[in-house]
Design a binder for these strands. Structure first.
Ligand code: FES
Ligand code: FES
Lengths: 145, 145
DNA sequence: CTAATAAAGGATAAAAAGATCCTTTTATAT
DNA sequence: ATATAAAAGGATCTTTTTATCCTTTATTAG
């Protein structure tokens, strides 16, 4: 569904968000080890997310990554996916045709866009805050993998 | 959503199916040009689909690819996707974690599997026959891209 | 039987995605 | 000021995906 970059990115952001609610800034090593991702590659992804104002980075000793409290209710999963994977997933044809619209639908079009739009809706409707506080178990259990 | 192989594969199969309902066998060149895909690459994909009994191939002069009439109501989109892209799309975690089940859900799990299951359901419910004869316009208009 | 045609399959190449390494910049504590 | 810690960024490498080329195998018409 998502690229590896996007998967790591989402995991990293959720982890940083989690720690930010605890007023804790986290460094690259901590993040990579927590979400089980390659360190240098994760660094690249965090650079992109920093440039796009999803996370805030602080250089130097005692530096690290964090997300401002007020941003947690603004940032949606959709934005993160959009930044890392582009919007092919939101607008692209299921069969890979260049055009995808109701005027020139491929044989899968109407069935496919229903799924695609549900995905889009789900990602747009969920902010980081939602993800953190709708987690049924309310823990960091998922980090174990 | 799907890999390029899978996109070409689905397009090829739908095209062959369409032609098969007209009792027409089609060759590689015709297929690749109709669905706008690279010829040699399409050949590889058709080999896989032949090995997996989705399409029937006939070698030699007057040869080509076809799908038996009775198979049109048996073959689902799901099978084709499964053959070409595996089942990561049906069972994989949205965040790329190794395990995905209700017992150790990631923060996206319950929202994600809903989408994933809808996609799976849609692909499983639609046979080639369905795709060909539910096409609102009932033409090959979509081939133009 | 032979020539021609078309798919199968092996080998290779190109492009993209995933991943690593090393140097530079910025900030902090002492 | 200096040493140190951490992110930023450039260069490079690896793996996977996408794509091409060429040889082999099977089939058919004449
Ligand atoms: S045209 Fe193919 S999904 Fe819209
Ligand atoms: S565990 Fe992540 S989607 Fe199921």
């Amino acid at each position: 569904m998502f690229s590896k970059s996007c998967e790591y990115g989402l995991r990293a952001v959720i982890f940083i968000a989690e720690q930010s609610t605890l007023q804790t800034k986290v460094g690259l090593k901590t993040i990579a080890s927590a979400i089980n991702s390659p360190e240098a590659f994760t660094a690249k992804i965090l650079q992109i997310l920093t440039r796009n104002n999803i996370v805030t980075s602080i250089k130097g000793p005692y530096g690290g990554f964090m997300i401002e409290e007020y941003r947690l209710k603004e940032i949606t999963l959709s934005e993160i996916v959009q930044i890392l994977d582009g919007d092919k997933i939101y607008t692209g044809c299921g069969l890979g045709l260049k055009q995808c619209d109701d005027k020139s639908p491929c044989p899968l079009h109407f069935k496919f866009i229903e799924i695609r739009n549900n995905l889009k809706k789900m990602l747009e409707e969920n902010t980081l805050h939602d993800i953190l506080f709708t987690d049924t178990e309310k823990n960091v259990f998922w980090l174990k993998t």
